[in-house]
Design a protein around this nucleic acid. Structure first.
Lengths: 210, 210
DNA sequence: TGCTACATACCGACCAGTCGGTAATGTAGC
DNA sequence: GCTACATTACCGACTGGTCGGTATGTAGCA
């Protein structure tokens, strides 16, 4: 018999904040920002309302924190992907990036769609804090991706006067639009098809494939 | 003195339904579906709650009707555009279509963004009625646009094995994504840039321009 | 002892939806 | 062309429940 009694189902003190952010990512992607209540978030995270408002001053503040965490996770999973980062040729890396995003589009839309895009679609006009955080998230991703694209341009050249940053934003646009179409059609295939068009466009710009 | 007294500001019987649909298009595009309450819709339309539930059984039912009206309006404004329909060469018509969509992207996002995309982003998993209506709206637009694209392919040919319908959906994807990016960046310019990328892609597919 | 990390109970505002009623608009019979 | 009745369009007070947020208390750790 241990001197300590068995853990009496205490929900582990100290991680309420992180659990709430995870719950936000899951619930908001499924049912949107406004339709997700603080009570629902607390129930999903297994914490009480007191814990919620201990960590976040308002629901909006949680949204901002969840957006920042989402951005950080995206950086880790996509730009931190070891196999992808190991690719020497920057253009190969750009295509591998697109292929990675394509591969992630599978199953129900609530699992692959973007938390940030969902939030900003609803809140851009009514919450400047959420609008600003969402804009920063998109900018961070695009600027980081533009670095790879610029390297590819430097090595291989590109058709027309396309800028790396503009192309990076276009990739984001296609992904965000693909999520919307997938939700409307109830099918991820339509989203993958659009990303395939996008990939072909980039191939054409770099005069590769064909 | 007329025998009839002056009209005592009666809000014109018989158009409550249409006014509510217009209010829905405006309010939902600005603040999203869930954040738009029935009371707000009534206030904006200048009708009472009694009128609302006389015409629509539920809030969802109004959403379905507003989606159908949105689809019809899009058909009129875009495919019914006289100058566009008069273009003889189908490929010219396809480019004029894209240019028209590009020209509409101006001012605040709540004025050019898509009602259907906004609704389905929030409601796809929680309201099958709204999901279905949104899917039908997107399908209607894409299938109609694909007719023009198919004619262009028949006349001019196209690179690769691209299908007209797939390309039509891709155009829609880029537009929907452009609306999301415009909201996040607080700037329509980023949306126009993506549509410019899209136009260049179509030009390359049809080996035109450059 | 004092601070952090919660929990519990509660608040007024607002939510979608209901319901009994009224006024305008057909419509059928004579 | 007038009455009787049916139908449609609309009104607004009301309901049970949920909303975001607050006030106060407490358990665990330094």
């Amino acid at each position: 018999m241990p001197s300590r009694e068995a853990p009496p189902f205490k929900p582990a003190r100290g991680n309420a904040r992180g659990t709430l952010l995870d719950a936000a990512h899951a619930l908001v992607r499924r049912q949107g920002w406004a339709a997700t209540s603080v009570d629902q978030l607390c129930a999903a995270a297994g914490v009480t309302k007191g814990a919620f408002f201990h960590h976040f001053a308002t629901k909006d503040a949680l949204g901002v924190a969840a957006t920042e965490q989402w951005t950080e996770r995206a950086r880790e999973h996509i730009f931190g992907n070891a196999a992808l980062a190991a690719i020497a040729d920057p253009l190969d890396r750009v295509f591998a990036h697109i292929d990675l995003r394509l591969a992630l589009i599978d199953g129900p839309a609530e699992d692959f769609s973007c938390f940030v895009g969902t939030v900003v679609q609803e809140a851009f006009a009514t919450s400047s804090a959420l609008r600003f955080a969402s804009g920063a998230s998109m900018t961070t991703y695009a600027e980081r991706f533009a670095e790879d694209i610029q390297q590819a341009i430097d090595v291989h050249g590109i058709a027309g006067q396309t800028s790396a940053l503009s192309l990076a934003y276009h990739v984001q646009t296609v992904l965000q639009g693909a999520f919307v179409l997938a939700k409307a059609k109830g099918d991820a295939a339509i989203a993958r098809e659009s990303v395939a068009h996008l990939k072909r466009y980039v191939e054409m710009l770099f005069e590769r494939g064909n």
